[in-house]
Design a binder for these strands. Sequence first.
DNA 1: GCACTACACTTCGATATCGAATCATTGGAC
DNA 2: GTCCAATGATTCGATATCGAAGTGTAGTGC
Lengths: 158, 158
Amino acid sequence: MPTRFKGNPTEVLALNTLIKLSRSLSALSALLLPPLQKAHGITESQLGVLEALQHLGPLTQGQLCQKILRSGSNLTTVVDNLERGGLVRRERDTADRRVQVVHLTPKGEALITAAFPSHVERVTRVLSVLTLEEQVELGRLCRKLGTARALPVSTLAH
Amino acid sequence: MPTRFKGNPTEVLALNTLIKLSRSLSALSALLLPPLQKAHGITESQLGVLEALQHLGPLTQGQLCQKILRSGSNLTTVVDNLERGGLVRRERDTADRRVQVVHLTPKGEALITAAFPSHVERVTRVLSVLTLEEQVELGRLCRKLGTARALPVSTLAH
DNA sequence: GCACTACACTTCGATATCGAATCATTGGAC
DNA sequence: GTCCAATGATTCGATATCGAAGTGTAGTGC
């Protein structure tokens, strides 16, 4: 499974770590998303949007971009699909007419209320292959990784 | 950033751990993929296929599916795009005519040879926000997570 | 040698995802 | 008031990704 790349040990470690990270998330997604799709007909991104709206109230599309870490153009598509399914509605902000505020509809509210608990249960069940301490440590490492920045090219020259 | 979900602590921990895992990978992808795209015009999946072919030699599409953990239909698309770009070619297996063997072309070989070292360097640089020990531990936790299985529904009833 | 099952891959229709270009609106400079 | 730069969202064209259904080939049982 690990890379066959012949590099120095630090490079091999970094590559293999990234591969494991990527594969673990793929594996989790394969376990968690089909039930959402089959039982409620929604995707991961749609769940993210619905959950944010339920817990935080109506949000602008820009705010939703922040929440689900996707591009603006992607968010337009996801909200389009949710709107077509009658789960959310857009409302133009009267103060700033560039802004679209996204609201949960009663149907969307009902769906997320029905879908989220069992999703949480599945997540908890799947993550339970790690002890609670391991989950904390994994979270810490991921959080630290998330702070990585692309260094300026000049630093390549050292 | 963490979920607003009001559940028991175990559920909240599991959800937050998953969110951090997902966000860390998104953050890494945002750093690593644009350079690949800009400098060489290839995507992450295409890199995965080209790298596998370079290190392992010609592979069937089924074998490539195993390597990059994607569905067969997706692999068809990715190989289609690589083939259109002249980076790989398909060759029908003479012994079993159902099988397509994917080969690197000289152009593909040149591209992956040019692209991979700088990619590895970027990966190493970005992962270096973690110590080597932390990378090892992160890899171990991810590996363990990847062994998670969906439990049968009956186990929900305890 | 025929039928049937299994397997490798492709096709199809859908959603996700991005970046670049575009559109509409806002708010500031003047 | 007019121009202009910035901002929020959409559109466009591309690739990725899936599952379901379809195609063609292999191999098995009889």
